[in-house]
Computed example of a mutant assay.
Amino acid sequence: MAPLTGNEIPARQPLIHMSEQLRHTPLNFDDIIIHSRLRDFEKSVTDSGLSIKLGHIGTERYLFKNQQVSLQRGSYLLVNRHQTFDCFIRNPTPVEGFCFYLSPRLIQEAASGLSRSVEDLLDHPAPKSNNKAPHFLEKIYRTDENKLGRYLEQLRPALVAHEQLDFNQVFFDVATALLRTHWRTEQEMRGIDCTRRSTREELYRRLCAARQFIFDNYCNDIQLEELAKAALLSKFHLLRTYKQAFGITPYQQVLELRLHKASRLVQEGGNLSHVASELGFSDRRSFTKAFKKKFGVAPSYYRAG
């Protein structure tokens, strides 16, 4: 699909390739995917559409309320409708990304499909118009941490290869995954023992920073002090609220990630002693004990036959 040369968006074109014309285009689309390719770019957005920005090549930087965030491959940024932010890119080679814009009607239809019974949908197929659009938690998410991120990663190769897609289904699937992820996030936030919504959201953001540190470093010897520093919380506060939100302690989170990776490596034929050492276990014996407790079989089971 050839990139646009003007500022207008053609009707019924769900995937659009854009570069410099983004400087002069209001970023408040509905049900469109923008594939951007930029090297030197800066824009202030005063009224955005609901969007999911997926990092692809290089780094995009955004400024929300004087807080800068960086978007790269392996992560996505969620931005609510009517948001204000600045975007800027400075790079000698092109930076690429995909941005999914979702309309209020699409979110409403997806929410109706998820929340209503089959019988109700058959009797009243039109979505209920009195459903208030949810306010999503705006932050950088890892694509491997939730349903939406995993779906975007599955979709990425088809978008890059310009494959023919059923975009009606794609947009509905993205909206559905977004809502499921939002409800899971709300459930995790409700677990935090805090009265004020704004305080709970801030605590959750900080806990997510600690969780991201764990995901990035779980093969290493992570100290509680490092996690507390990443989250800007005291060690006690971090331990208490982390389990409230995620139902697991930081130590258990590290162990779970190590064991799931160990399972993949062992099934691929990895040497057990090397796997144990690579994933931070003190020795093969402690690795075998933890593996068997988690999966019900020793890692040597995968060597049988």
Rank of each mutant, 00 (worst) to 15 (best):
K65F: 10
S198R: 13
A276V: 04
L38V: 03
L255I: 12
G74Q: 04
T181K: 02
W183E: 06
A262M: 04
S115I: 08
A2C: 03
R196C: 01
E153M: 14
F85K: 03
I52L: 10
L54W: 06
A177G: 12
A2S: 04
N168F: 07
L114S: 11
A262E: 06
Q164V: 09
I214S: 05
L77A: 09
G269V: 04
S103W: 07
F215C: 07
S263W: 03
Q68G: 07
E8G: 00
G55R: 00
V275K: 00
H260Y: 15
K147L: 15
V69K: 09
K43S: 00
S263F: 07
A175F: 09
D86P: 02
H56E: 07
C194P: 03
F29M: 12
D31N: 15
E20T: 11
Q244H: 06
Y151C: 13
L203Q: 11
Q154F: 10
E202H: 12
V69D: 12
M1K: 00
Q67Y: 11
A161P: 00
F287Y: 11
H260E: 15
P3G: 02
L159D: 02
H82L: 11
P92E: 13
G49D: 03
A133H: 14
Q252H: 14
R206W: 02
S70D: 15
Q72H: 10
R284F: 10
G191T: 05
P94H: 09
A158G: 06
G49A: 10
A2W: 06
C219Q: 15
L27K: 01
